[in-house]
Design a binder for these strands. Structure first.
Lengths: 337, 337
DNA sequence: TAAGTATATGAAAACGTTTGCGTAAGATTT
DNA sequence: AAATCTTACGCAAACGTTTTCATATACTTA
């Protein structure tokens, strides 16, 4: 358990500990022979630099904070996996925190990470109100938001074009003959969901069909919420031929409720989601949905953050990636009279 | 961006910075009036202690390293969520790394975390060989393994009783009338999977039925692997009436392959998994499986680790939790002649 | 009132690095 | 051979805390 430090190595090698440091960091101002000798001794003694001490003097931790609403959400865990791997390749480690969809907690963990002196923070915010709440804090450390569109705000973010994606989805259902499409899961506390609903409204207007929206009053879009919304909806007779969900998780909840009611998908009802989480692809689910390019989102976010860490003065940047339709088996064409 | 330090506060408050530190840490040897005054000034100036500097002197980071094979695996992401939340309540943050099922990478990230001076490490190892490879490293920092049974090794771990669980699963299928049960996904590089297979063998012996095992030569148990194994198996005529999988993810892959072949579950084939990941519960999947108590695993692991951090001298401890059968709709009773 | 005891505060060391600056020795130039 | 330049290394400061030890002040007590 006795940890070997620079001083220990220096004593053995018979040089000052500055020399050791230089040998290891590949500094040019050191003799080739001593470098080799020192490195050998370091290996023999099992010396590993103390990252904490290094951070102290270098004023840089090489740690990136990641705040997600909930890591056990397939969309976020996929993204986290991408982020962690790429970050490590760039020499950074990830400190991960759940905000648990709680704005107060989100603020708290943000402060925690600031106190930890992380070099930057990537966050998937609880909702659009997060920005105001964190205004003073994001000034203290480079921050990049993922998912939440902040086009009008002086913030860095990367997201998918939610409006275009949902509009495309609506048009796809229309092209299959659907005229009575229920939009399920609109939320007000999230710009993402506002924009997605916009896409639906835009399409309705363009296609001259009547919008029909079932709102989600909860703060999150989970399987459970989708189940409950759909269950309540299915209690009454309904005339929609398709349901378009604000998120795949919601759609999976709808499948559950439909299953219990004996409503077959896609025979009796067409269903679409948004996000393209891994499990949507499984044949028993086989959800037609809109893909969010998770790897590209992760890479863009990290690149953006790293860039900001290097040059904090650069103006805020915004990246919007294109979503794409993923056609599977949860929708069917119907005759439109 | 100018960060305010103890010295800055001290200057404003007109006291030494030792006093500030004491006021904030709740030390008793300080006047009540100065404490209040100092705290007020700290708040006004927006002072937050530098955790790196604190770690330096306290020789403790309050960071726990978590190494998982892959964070985007529902079992691990659920566990990670539990761990992060509980750890934070205990005053720790989580540094998360993927080993990507690669023993070499696993070793590398372990060293990385040691260099970061994390207070302890929780890891879900790639396989049983991880122990040997990391022997020297686990001596450097308190480590707790999750999932992998190391009953014979001088290590700390918490796991579920894999053998009992799989035996129970086999007996359940037997009780439904199944006599020809394929065990799919046995692996050699993981003690967990060895023990699960043992459970199957034990039950076969006890019930006097012929064991029938399809091995998994890959290093991981993913949906993809399950799909491929089952697909190959379904190419030939087969006589099994049930398939028992070493993991839920494998079973989901089997569902996919069965679906493509027009094999209905449970009508044509009964199917069981192990782990009880969230998605197994969804009606279209509705997998009968064996539950691993993820919250309890997480809590036990962290308690064990925290205990070891406090008292590194304590002997290694091992906790084995009980799995439980979760009966859903992927199995049916058949007449046994 | 003198001596002793609490109590509140300050000074300074320590944690393990990186790095700017100084310098001795060796190499190069004239 | 003297002067200059390079090279290789050591010294010591700095990073921002916590904490031990010393000390000054105020408060008891005889």
């Amino acid at each position: 358990m006795a940890v070997v430090t620079l001083k220990d190595v220096a004593k053995v090698a018979g040089v000052s500990y500055a020399t050791i440091s230089r040998a290891l960091s590949g500094s040019p101002e050191i003799g080739e022979s001593t470098r080799k000798r020192v490195i050998k001794i370091c290996e023999e003694m099992g010396y590993t630099p103390n990252a904490v001490a290094r951070s102290m003097v270098m004023k840089r931790t090489n740690i990136i904070g990641l705040i997600v609403t909930s890591i056990d959400n397939p969309f976020m865990s996929e993204m986290t996996a991408h982020l962690e791997i790429y970050a490590r390749q760039c020499g950074y480690n990830l400190m991960v925190c759940n905000s648990s969809y709680d704005p107060a907690l989100e603020k708290e963990v943000f402060s925690l990470l600031v106190g930890r002196k992380v070099d930057g923070i990537i966050m998937i915010p609880v909702g659009s109100e997060s920005y105001d709440a964190l205004k003073t804090q994001t000034a203290q450390v480079p921050t990049v938001f993922i998912g939440e569109n902040m086009m009008d705000l002086p913030e860095n973010f990367v997201s998918v074009d939610n409006t275009a994606g949902m509009q495309q989805a609506t048009e796809y259902l229309y092209s299959l003959g659907h005229r009575n499409i229920l939009y399920l899961g609109a939320r007000d506390n999230s710009m993402t969901h506002k924009l997605r609903a916009d896409g639906y409204y835009n399409a309705c207007k363009k296609l001259r069909i009547e919008p029909n929206v079932l709102r989600n009053s909860s703060a999150r879009s989970s399987v459970q919420v989708g189940y409950e919304l759909a269950k309540a909806h299915f209690e009454q007779p309904f005339s929609e031929t398709a349901i378009l969900c604000a998120a795949d998780t919601l759609a999976i909840g709808v499948i559950q409720a439909a299953y219990e009611k004996g409503i077959r998908i896609p025979e009796d009802l067409s269903l679409m989601g948004f996000d393209n989480i891994t499990f949507s692809a499984l044949p028993p689910i086989s959800l037609t949905t809109v893909n969010q390019p998770k790897l590209e989102l992760a890479v863009s976010a990290l690149d953006m953050l790293l860039n900001r860490i290097k040059r904090p003065e650069t103006p805020h940047t915004k990246t919007i990636l294109s979503p794409s339709l993923v056609i599977r088996n949860s929708c069917r064409a119907i005759g439109n009279n």
